[in-house]
Amino acid sequence: MMLSAALIAILVGMALLLIRAFVGPTIYDRILAVNNFGTKTVLVLALYGFVTERPDFLDIAIVYALCNFIATMAILKYFEYGDLGHVGKQPEDEKL
């Protein structure tokens, strides 16, 4: 029962984050909202697996956590450097 309540609480939190993603105002607010929405989705999937007594779906939650991080990093890299091919300062560059 408590599991369902926690699930509902997270869904309400998701709704709040959707509002933030819709209204902005800056692009960084939206990125923050998308990233945090991803974390909440991971939690929803984990909780949902336990609510329906089939926690085997946790693999998807793991994939989500990974993808969410990579996508956030790609978006931020895009906004910082203007394209994704940009290579930051790396030890290899100094050797060459």
């Binding site: 990125i31 998308v34 779906f57 998807i60 978006i75």
Partner: peptide
């Protein structure tokens, strides 16, 4: 950005509908 959220939601829905494999693909 919003498409990111959209596909997160879609994949969560696939899990709820028991289509775990599709959810996996959609997530990735």
């Amino acid at each position: 950005m919003l498409f990111g959220i959209y596909s997160l939601l879609t994949a969560a829905l696939f899990v709820v509908l028991d289509a775990v494999d599709v959810a996996f693909t959609e997530a990735a």
